[in-house]
Every structure is written in structure tokens, then in C-alpha cells.
């Protein structure tokens, strides 16, 4: 199969959906003439024109609100918020206007918009925050976090076709990753986890950029004879609880990995859900989270190791839970 980079896969998804459905349009800062800071919207202006590929002023709240209004009246807007840190400005529109639109109209109207945004990972203090947990907390929003090019395309197409507002979170570290991507438009359904590694000893749940980290840790641990099952939920809302629970019932051990801050992170939700499930009676060890310990992501690489979870941290956590017999 042909390979594409993650950002190219996203671009193809947008192009194919805009070809398929004329209600789909994209808007955001630097997305039309420039083609997006990370080239995700490259070539769209030329193909679809300025009516459907809109360079906006720096007005994050305004453009998300605008997208909500357009979605309510029948369009399928895809907004780009250049960095996830900037989404803080648009929180009212996401949390109040978008998320509750279907509810207050009791389904007579709904807001099928997609807010694409991206985490720089190792950018600056103001461009590297992983804020997915905020959105998972809001009824009415769906949260999607693809970890490879194949999922990026399939999940973005699903998000665009989804009737509810979707927060679609990309990651700079992933944009350059290459992977096999079908040429035809296809969907990856929201709410279905995948298992990039199967194993019997420890379940590691990781998403977005942490999936690769978890996979690398799993490969290293396989040499020690520890079978790690890596689960990439791909979407946090909806969340494939059954898959995680079934895996923990099998392995009895759970490690959750996310780049976001541990305190109040979505990992806490996963851990709680597992202990509330039938998997509780299969737990052999405490659930461990590998996450940002509660610090802003610093600029200097010298400060990164404790702040950003890495392979060694995952390996350490797995060995730790293995110590419980």
C-alpha cells in the first residue's frame, strides 16, 4: 500500500470530504494561502477556492463560534486552531455554544463541526500543553486523538461526517510519521480502540504521541519476557471501555500513558473506569500512570526528561506493576 505522512493523510481526508460534500469547508489562521503551518490544508485553496478555504483573522473564539453557527444551519465546518494552547480562547464557544447546541434544541438542530488542533509536544511553554481532558469533561463533545497516518485520515473523515462536535487533536511529533494509507476515502469509527501490540502480562493504554512510546517500551520489554498489550483508544469520547476492561481482565495489570498532566488527566478516568468494572477483581497490582508530573512543558531540552513521559518511564512503570506477582 502507498505510504503517506500523518499531515498528508489529514490533508487527503479534508480534500476527499470537500470533494464529496460541498457543505464541508475549512477555516482558520494561515490555512488557505499558506496551506497551514504544518501543511495539513495544503492545496485546498487552489482546489476549492476562498469561499470554502477561509483564512481568518486571529479570532479563535470568533471563528469557533462562527463554525457553530454555520454547523447549526447546515454546513460542515472544519476549524483549525493552530496550537492547542490557543484553544483556551475559544473555550466558551466550544463548551457552551457547540457542546450544548443539540441538547437545548432537543435534537431539532445540531452542530456537526470539527475543531482540529495540535500539540507541539516540545514547543514552548505556551504551545505544548495537552489539554484533552478538559474536553472529555464536557457533555456533548467528542474527542479524537489519532496516533498514526492511517487513523489520522480515517478518523478525520469520521469526525467530519459525525453529527456532533468533535475536538480533533493532532500532534507535531506525529506529522512526519509515515504509514500506509489507502487512497480511497475510508472511515475509522469513533469509539473503537486498536491493539498495536498484544500481550498477556500488562495492559498499557496510550494515545496520540504516546502510542509510539508505548510500542517501543513493549518491544524492549518483550526481550525481558514481559508481554505488553498496547491499547490505543484512538478516541477518548467515545471511549472503548470494553476493550480496555477485557484486556485488564486478561493481564491483571494496567499502565496508562499520556503526555498531559497526571493530575486530573484522562488517565485518572481510565483508571477509575477499570476499578469500577469487572476488571477490578482481576487486578494484580496498583494501576500506574505515566504522565507529566504537573509542570508546564519547558522550552529547554535539558528540562524535558522529567516533564515529558518517555520509553524509560513506561518500562519503569511496567516493571513496577510486574513486581506484584
Amino acid at each position: 500500500m502507498r505510504t503517506l505522512r500523518y499531515n498528508q493523510a489529514l490533508c487527503e481526508a479534508l480534500r476527499q470530504e470537500m470533494d464529496r460534500d460541498e457543505r464541508v469547508f475549512v477555516l482558520g489562521e494561515d490555512i488557505a494561502r499558506h496551506g497551514g503551518v504544518y501543511r495539513v490544508t495544503e492545496g485546498l485553496l487552489e482546489r476549492f477556492g476562498p469561499e470554502r478555504v477561509i483564512d481568518t483573522p486571529i479570532s479563535e473564539s470568533g471563528i469557533v463560534g462562527l463554525a457553530v453557527g454555520a454547523a447549526l444551519l447546515g454546513m460542515r465546518p472544519v476549524v483549525e486552531i493552530q496550537f492547542m494552547d490557543l484553544i483556551t480562547i475559544a473555550m466558551d464557544q466550544i463548551v457552551n455554544s457547540a457542546a450544548k447546541a443539540r441538547f437545548v434544541h432537543d435534537g431539532a438542530l445540531h452542530a456537526p463541526l470539527v475543531v482540529r488542533t495540535m500539540n507541539l509536544g516540545k514547543g514552548t511553554v505556551y504551545s505544548s500543553q495537552e489539554l484533552e481532558a478538559w474536553f472529555t469533561h464536557v457533555p456533548g463533545l467528542k474527542v479524537v486523538m489519532p496516533s498514526d497516518p492511517y487513523d489520522a485520515k480515517g478518523l478525520l473523515i469520521s469526525a467530519i461526517r459525525d453529527p456532533d462536535p468533535v475536538i480533533f487533536i493532532e500532534h507535531k511529533a506525529l506529522y512526519r510519521i509515515e504509514g500506509e494509507v489507502e487512497e480511497e476515502a475510508y472511515t475509522v469509527p469513533l469509539g473503537q480502540a486498536k491493539l498495536p501490540r498484544e500481550g498477556d502480562d500488562v495492559t498499557v493504554v496510550a494515545w496520540s504521541s504516546m502510542v509510539g512510546v508505548a510500542e517501543a517500551a513493549a518491544d524492549s520489554l518483550a526481550d525481558e519476557g514481559i508481554g505488553v498489550e498496547v491499547i490505543d483508544p484512538r478516541t477518548l469520547v467515545p471511549f472503548d471501555r470494553e476493550r480496555v476492561v477485557a484486556s485488564v481482565c486478561k493481564t491483571g495489570r494496567l499502565v496508562i500513558v499520556h503526555q498531559a498532566v497526571r493530575r486530573g488527566g484522562f488517565g485518572a478516568e481510565v483508571a477509575a473506569a477499570v476499578t469500577e468494572s469487572e476488571a477490578f477483581g482481576y487486578l494484580m497490582a496498583p494501576i500506574r500512570r505515566v504522565a507529566n508530573p504537573g509542570v508546564p512543558v519547558p522550552k529547554s531540552g535539558a528540562l524535558h526528561p522529567p516533564a515529558l513521559p518517555g520509553e524509560a518511564d513506561v518500562i519503569g512503570a511496567v516493571r513496577d506493576v510486574m513486581a506484584y506477582g
Binding site: G252, Y282, L283, Y324
Partner: peptide, 17 residues
Amino acid sequence: SKAGSDERRKASPVARR
């Protein structure tokens, strides 16, 4: 022999079950 009741013994959930 440890005659304390089971509740207070440190045990993993699966061990308890």
C-alpha cells in the same frame, strides 16, 4: 499465626477475589 481478619491484609484485588 496472623489471626487478623482478612479485610486488613494487604492483598491485590485479584488475590482477594
